[in-house]
Protein backbone atom coordinates (compact mmCIF):
# COMPACT_ATOMS: atom_id res chain seq x y z
CA UNK A 1 0.00 0.00 0.00
CA UNK A 2 2.88 2.35 0.73
CA UNK A 3 3.99 1.70 -2.85
CA UNK A 4 0.66 2.99 -4.12
CA UNK A 5 0.66 6.06 -1.91
CA UNK A 6 4.27 6.83 -2.82
CA UNK A 7 3.33 6.90 -6.49
CA UNK A 8 0.19 8.89 -5.76
CA UNK A 9 2.16 11.52 -3.85
CA UNK A 10 4.73 12.04 -6.59
CA UNK A 11 2.00 11.97 -9.23
CA UNK A 12 0.07 14.62 -7.35
CA UNK A 13 3.12 16.88 -7.03
CA UNK A 14 3.94 16.39 -10.69
CA UNK A 15 0.31 17.05 -11.56
CA UNK A 16 0.40 20.42 -9.77
CA UNK A 17 3.40 21.41 -11.88
CA UNK A 18 1.69 20.28 -15.07
CA UNK A 19 -1.36 22.27 -14.03
CA UNK A 20 0.67 25.46 -13.60
CA UNK A 21 2.01 25.11 -17.13
CA UNK A 22 -1.34 24.01 -18.56
CA UNK A 23 -2.87 27.22 -17.18
CA UNK A 24 -0.58 29.21 -19.45
CA UNK A 25 -1.72 27.29 -22.51
CA UNK A 26 -5.34 27.56 -21.49
CA UNK A 27 -5.32 31.30 -20.70
CA UNK A 28 -3.82 32.18 -24.06
CA UNK A 29 -6.09 29.79 -25.89
CA UNK A 30 -9.16 31.07 -24.11
CA UNK A 31 -8.43 34.59 -25.26
CA UNK A 32 -6.75 34.23 -28.64
CA UNK A 33 -7.83 30.70 -29.72
CA UNK A 34 -4.22 29.95 -30.46
CA UNK A 35 -1.71 27.52 -28.95
CA UNK A 36 1.41 29.25 -27.75
CA UNK A 37 4.04 26.69 -28.64
CA UNK A 38 6.79 28.80 -27.16
CA UNK A 39 5.23 28.19 -23.74
CA UNK A 40 7.38 25.13 -22.95
CA UNK A 41 10.44 27.27 -23.65
CA UNK A 42 9.30 29.79 -21.08
CA UNK A 43 9.21 26.91 -18.57
CA UNK A 44 12.79 26.11 -19.53
CA UNK A 45 13.76 29.78 -19.24
CA UNK A 46 12.27 29.96 -15.75
CA UNK A 47 14.45 27.16 -14.46
CA UNK A 48 17.56 28.39 -16.25
CA UNK A 49 17.08 31.99 -15.06
CA UNK A 50 17.05 30.60 -11.52
CA UNK A 51 20.29 28.79 -12.26
CA UNK A 52 21.87 31.93 -13.69
CA UNK A 53 20.83 34.16 -10.77
CA UNK A 54 22.10 31.57 -8.31
CA UNK A 55 25.42 31.58 -10.17
CA UNK A 56 25.63 35.36 -9.97
CA UNK A 57 24.85 35.29 -6.28
CA UNK A 58 27.43 32.55 -5.86
CA UNK A 59 25.07 30.24 -4.04
CA UNK A 60 24.75 27.40 -6.47
CA UNK A 61 25.64 24.20 -4.72
CA UNK A 62 24.83 24.42 -1.05
CA UNK A 63 21.50 24.68 0.66
CA UNK A 64 20.69 28.37 0.86
CA UNK A 65 18.58 30.63 3.03
CA UNK A 66 14.85 30.99 2.45
CA UNK A 67 15.24 34.68 1.68
CA UNK A 68 17.77 34.06 -1.09
CA UNK A 69 15.64 31.24 -2.47
CA UNK A 70 12.59 33.44 -2.63
CA UNK A 71 14.68 36.22 -4.15
CA UNK A 72 15.92 33.92 -6.90
CA UNK A 73 12.43 32.58 -7.46
CA UNK A 74 10.95 36.09 -7.63
CA UNK A 75 13.62 37.37 -10.02
CA UNK A 76 13.19 34.42 -12.37
CA UNK A 77 9.42 34.75 -12.36
CA UNK A 78 9.72 38.46 -13.15
CA UNK A 79 12.25 37.76 -15.90
CA UNK A 80 9.95 35.22 -17.50
CA UNK A 81 7.00 37.57 -17.21
CA UNK A 82 9.10 40.13 -19.09
CA UNK A 83 10.02 37.52 -21.70
CA UNK A 84 6.34 36.60 -22.10
CA UNK A 85 5.44 40.26 -22.55
CA UNK A 86 8.22 40.75 -25.12
CA UNK A 87 7.27 37.65 -27.12
CA UNK A 88 3.69 38.84 -27.32
CA UNK A 89 4.68 42.38 -28.26
CA UNK A 90 7.25 41.51 -30.90
CA UNK A 91 6.08 38.21 -32.36
CA UNK A 92 2.34 37.86 -31.87
CA UNK A 93 0.83 41.33 -31.76
CA UNK A 94 1.85 42.31 -35.31
CA UNK A 95 -0.03 39.22 -36.48
CA UNK A 96 -3.24 39.93 -34.56
CA UNK A 97 -5.29 40.27 -37.76
CA UNK A 98 -3.39 37.74 -39.86
CA UNK A 99 -4.80 34.23 -40.43
CA UNK A 100 -4.42 32.06 -37.34
CA UNK A 101 -1.99 29.65 -38.97
CA UNK A 102 0.56 32.47 -39.35
CA UNK A 103 0.68 33.11 -35.64
CA UNK A 104 0.99 29.35 -34.98
CA UNK A 105 4.01 29.07 -37.25
CA UNK A 106 5.45 32.16 -35.59
CA UNK A 107 5.08 30.46 -32.22
CA UNK A 108 7.16 27.55 -33.46
CA UNK A 109 9.72 30.02 -34.77
CA UNK A 110 9.89 31.76 -31.40
CA UNK A 111 10.31 28.37 -29.76
CA UNK A 112 13.23 27.42 -32.03
CA UNK A 113 14.83 30.80 -31.47
CA UNK A 114 14.64 30.55 -27.68
CA UNK A 115 15.99 26.99 -27.64
CA UNK A 116 18.97 27.79 -29.81
CA UNK A 117 19.75 31.31 -28.63
CA UNK A 118 19.88 30.21 -25.00
CA UNK A 119 22.42 27.53 -25.86
CA UNK A 120 25.05 30.17 -26.55
CA UNK A 121 27.92 29.91 -24.10
CA UNK A 122 27.33 33.37 -22.59
CA UNK A 123 23.61 32.73 -22.11
CA UNK A 124 23.08 29.31 -20.50
CA UNK A 125 25.40 27.06 -22.51
CA UNK A 126 24.66 23.75 -24.10
CA UNK A 127 25.31 21.50 -21.10
CA UNK A 128 23.12 19.85 -18.52
CA UNK A 129 23.67 21.47 -15.14
CA UNK A 130 22.88 20.86 -11.51
CA UNK A 131 19.89 22.84 -10.28
CA UNK A 132 20.85 25.02 -7.34
CA UNK A 133 19.31 23.65 -4.17
CA UNK A 134 16.75 26.35 -3.49
CA UNK A 135 15.19 23.91 -1.04
CA UNK A 136 16.73 21.00 0.82
CA UNK A 137 15.39 18.17 -1.32
CA UNK A 138 16.66 15.44 1.00
CA UNK A 139 14.79 16.61 4.08
CA UNK A 140 11.54 14.82 4.81
CA UNK A 141 9.81 12.23 6.95
CA UNK A 142 8.23 8.80 6.63
CA UNK A 143 4.51 8.15 7.00
CA UNK A 144 3.73 4.44 6.98
CA UNK A 145 6.59 3.67 4.61
CA UNK A 146 5.90 6.58 2.27
CA UNK A 147 8.71 9.07 1.99
CA UNK A 148 7.35 12.62 2.10
CA UNK A 149 9.77 15.43 1.38
CA UNK A 150 9.21 18.93 2.68
CA UNK A 151 9.77 20.41 -0.75
CA UNK A 152 6.88 18.32 -2.10
CA UNK A 153 4.56 19.89 0.45
CA UNK A 154 5.92 23.34 -0.36
CA UNK A 155 5.44 22.69 -4.10
CA UNK A 156 1.81 21.67 -3.66
CA UNK A 157 0.96 24.56 -1.33
CA UNK A 158 2.71 27.02 -3.59
CA UNK A 159 1.03 25.68 -6.74
CA UNK A 160 -2.43 25.79 -5.19
CA UNK A 161 -1.84 29.28 -3.85
CA UNK A 162 -0.93 30.45 -7.35
CA UNK A 163 -3.96 28.74 -8.86
CA UNK A 164 -6.26 30.28 -6.24
CA UNK A 165 -4.78 33.72 -6.94
CA UNK A 166 -5.30 33.21 -10.64
CA UNK A 167 -8.94 32.24 -10.30
CA UNK A 168 -9.52 35.21 -7.98
CA UNK A 169 -8.00 37.41 -10.61
CA UNK A 170 -10.03 35.98 -13.47
CA UNK A 171 -13.39 35.82 -11.67
CA UNK A 172 -13.20 38.70 -9.20
CA UNK A 173 -11.33 41.60 -10.76
CA UNK A 174 -11.88 44.10 -13.56
CA UNK A 175 -8.92 42.69 -15.46
CA UNK A 176 -10.39 39.22 -15.15
CA UNK A 177 -13.74 40.43 -16.37
CA UNK A 178 -12.05 42.05 -19.33
CA UNK A 179 -10.22 38.80 -20.08
CA UNK A 180 -13.46 36.85 -19.99
CA UNK A 181 -15.15 39.40 -22.19
CA UNK A 182 -12.39 39.18 -24.76
CA UNK A 183 -12.48 35.40 -24.73
CA UNK A 184 -16.22 35.59 -25.36
CA UNK A 185 -16.03 38.03 -28.24
CA UNK A 186 -12.94 40.08 -28.94
CA UNK A 187 -14.51 42.58 -31.33
CA UNK A 188 -17.50 43.39 -29.15
CA UNK A 189 -15.24 43.69 -26.12
CA UNK A 190 -13.11 46.22 -27.92
CA UNK A 191 -16.23 48.11 -29.05
CA UNK A 192 -17.24 48.30 -25.39
CA UNK A 193 -14.03 50.14 -24.66
CA UNK A 194 -11.95 47.26 -23.29
CA UNK A 195 -8.27 47.81 -24.13
CA UNK A 196 -7.86 44.40 -25.76
CA UNK A 197 -4.17 44.81 -26.59
CA UNK A 198 -3.23 45.54 -23.00
CA UNK A 199 -5.39 42.74 -21.58
CA UNK A 200 -3.85 40.22 -24.00
CA UNK A 201 -0.36 41.37 -22.96
CA UNK A 202 -1.30 40.83 -19.28
CA UNK A 203 -2.50 37.35 -20.13
CA UNK A 204 0.89 36.44 -21.57
CA UNK A 205 2.64 37.93 -18.55
CA UNK A 206 0.48 35.84 -16.19
CA UNK A 207 0.93 32.62 -18.13
CA UNK A 208 4.68 33.10 -18.36
CA UNK A 209 5.01 33.82 -14.65
CA UNK A 210 3.15 30.59 -13.80
CA UNK A 211 5.33 28.66 -16.26
CA UNK A 212 8.48 30.07 -14.68
CA UNK A 213 7.36 29.00 -11.22
CA UNK A 214 6.64 25.51 -12.56
CA UNK A 215 10.03 25.35 -14.28
CA UNK A 216 11.91 26.28 -11.13
CA UNK A 217 10.00 23.86 -8.91
CA UNK A 218 10.54 21.11 -11.49
CA UNK A 219 14.25 21.79 -11.62
CA UNK A 220 14.48 21.63 -7.84
CA UNK A 221 12.45 18.41 -7.69
CA UNK A 222 14.51 16.60 -10.32
CA UNK A 223 17.85 17.98 -9.22
CA UNK A 224 19.24 18.76 -12.64
CA UNK A 225 18.51 20.97 -15.61
CA UNK A 226 18.52 19.60 -19.12
CA UNK A 227 20.25 21.82 -21.62
CA UNK A 228 17.93 24.39 -23.23
CA UNK A 229 17.06 22.51 -26.42
CA UNK A 230 16.72 19.12 -24.76
CA UNK A 231 13.71 17.04 -25.69
CA UNK A 232 12.95 16.71 -21.99
CA UNK A 233 11.68 20.32 -21.91
CA UNK A 234 9.66 19.84 -25.05
CA UNK A 235 8.13 16.64 -23.70
CA UNK A 236 7.38 18.34 -20.42
CA UNK A 237 5.60 21.18 -22.20
CA UNK A 238 3.79 18.76 -24.45
CA UNK A 239 2.49 16.79 -21.46
CA UNK A 240 1.23 19.99 -19.88
CA UNK A 241 -0.43 20.83 -23.17
CA UNK A 242 -2.15 17.43 -23.10
CA UNK A 243 -3.33 18.23 -19.57
CA UNK A 244 -4.90 21.42 -20.88
CA UNK A 245 -6.62 19.55 -23.72
CA UNK A 246 -7.80 16.68 -21.51
CA UNK A 247 -9.22 19.11 -18.98
CA UNK A 248 -10.83 21.18 -21.70
CA UNK A 249 -8.65 23.86 -23.20
CA UNK A 250 -9.77 27.35 -22.31
CA UNK A 251 -11.04 26.20 -18.92
CA UNK A 252 -9.07 27.03 -15.75
CA UNK A 253 -10.64 24.25 -13.66
CA UNK A 254 -9.97 21.93 -16.59
CA UNK A 255 -6.25 22.73 -16.63
CA UNK A 256 -5.96 21.86 -12.94
CA UNK A 257 -8.03 18.68 -13.25
CA UNK A 258 -6.17 17.62 -16.39
CA UNK A 259 -2.81 18.27 -14.73
CA UNK A 260 -3.62 16.13 -11.72
CA UNK A 261 -5.19 13.38 -13.85
CA UNK A 262 -2.18 13.12 -16.16
CA UNK A 263 0.41 13.47 -13.38
CA UNK A 264 -1.15 10.67 -11.33
CA UNK A 265 -1.89 8.45 -14.35
CA UNK A 266 1.72 8.73 -15.45
CA UNK A 267 3.08 7.60 -12.10
CA UNK A 268 0.59 4.77 -11.59
CA UNK A 269 1.11 3.53 -15.14
CA UNK A 270 4.87 3.58 -14.59
CA UNK A 271 4.57 1.83 -11.25
CA UNK A 272 1.98 -0.82 -12.02
CA UNK A 273 2.25 -1.44 -15.76
CA UNK A 274 5.59 -0.44 -17.16
CA UNK A 275 7.70 2.69 -17.14
CA UNK A 276 8.46 2.06 -20.82
CA UNK A 277 4.79 2.48 -21.64
CA UNK A 278 3.94 5.31 -19.23
CA UNK A 279 4.01 7.92 -22.01
CA UNK A 280 1.94 5.74 -24.32
CA UNK A 281 -0.65 5.35 -21.58
CA UNK A 282 -0.78 9.10 -20.99
CA UNK A 283 -1.43 9.66 -24.69
CA UNK A 284 -4.00 6.85 -24.55
CA UNK A 285 -5.86 8.76 -21.82
CA UNK A 286 -5.86 11.79 -24.10
CA UNK A 287 -7.39 9.78 -26.94
CA UNK A 288 -10.00 8.20 -24.64
CA UNK A 289 -11.07 11.53 -23.17
CA UNK A 290 -11.29 13.12 -26.60
CA UNK A 291 -13.41 10.21 -27.85
CA UNK A 292 -15.90 10.52 -25.02
CA UNK A 293 -15.79 14.28 -24.59
CA UNK A 294 -14.19 15.90 -27.64
CA UNK A 295 -13.84 19.22 -25.86
CA UNK A 296 -12.25 17.84 -22.71
CA UNK A 297 -13.54 17.15 -19.20
CA UNK A 298 -14.55 20.72 -18.39
CA UNK A 299 -14.91 21.81 -21.97
CA UNK A 300 -18.08 23.43 -23.23
CA UNK A 301 -19.10 22.49 -26.74
CA UNK A 302 -20.09 25.54 -28.71
CA UNK A 303 -22.01 25.02 -31.85
CA UNK A 304 -20.39 26.72 -34.78
CA UNK A 305 -22.44 29.73 -35.87
CA UNK A 306 -23.37 29.83 -39.50
Amino acid sequence: MSFFFGLLLVGFVQGCLYALIALGYTLVFGILQFINFAHSDVVMLGAWFAWKYAQWMGVSFSVISIGTSLGILGLSVLSCAAVGFTIERLAYRPLRHAPRINILITAIGVSLFLENFTQLPYVFGSRDKAMPQLLDVYAGFDVGGVRVQYFQIITVVFAFALMALLSLLVYRTRLGRAMRAISFDTRTASLMGIPTGRVIAYTFVLGSALAAAAGILTGVAFGSLSQPSSTSWIRFGLKAFICAVVGGIGSIEGAVAGGLLIGITEQLAGGYISSSYADAIVFGVLILVLMVRPSGIFGVTMREKV
Binding site: F37, N116, T231
Partner: peptide
Protein backbone atom coordinates in the same frame (compact mmCIF):
# COMPACT_ATOMS: atom_id res chain seq x y z
CA UNK B 1 -14.71 29.81 -22.29
CA UNK B 2 -15.09 29.84 -26.02
CA UNK B 3 -14.04 27.03 -28.28
CA UNK B 4 -15.20 25.30 -31.37
CA UNK B 5 -14.80 21.85 -32.82
CA UNK B 6 -12.56 23.04 -35.59
CA UNK B 7 -9.97 24.40 -33.20
CA UNK B 8 -9.65 21.04 -31.50
CA UNK B 9 -8.94 19.52 -34.89
CA UNK B 10 -6.31 22.16 -35.52
CA UNK B 11 -4.72 21.16 -32.23
CA UNK B 12 -4.22 17.58 -33.24
CA UNK B 13 -2.59 18.62 -36.48
CA UNK B 14 -0.41 21.11 -34.73
CA UNK B 15 0.65 18.55 -32.17
CA UNK B 16 2.38 16.49 -34.82
CA UNK B 17 3.82 19.63 -36.35
CA UNK B 18 5.44 20.61 -33.07
CA UNK B 19 6.82 17.16 -32.53
CA UNK B 20 8.64 17.30 -35.81
CA UNK B 21 9.76 20.83 -35.10
CA UNK B 22 11.07 19.63 -31.78
CA UNK B 23 13.09 16.91 -33.46
CA UNK B 24 14.43 19.42 -35.96
CA UNK B 25 15.66 21.63 -33.15
Amino acid sequence: MVRSRSSVQVLVGVLSLTLSAALAT
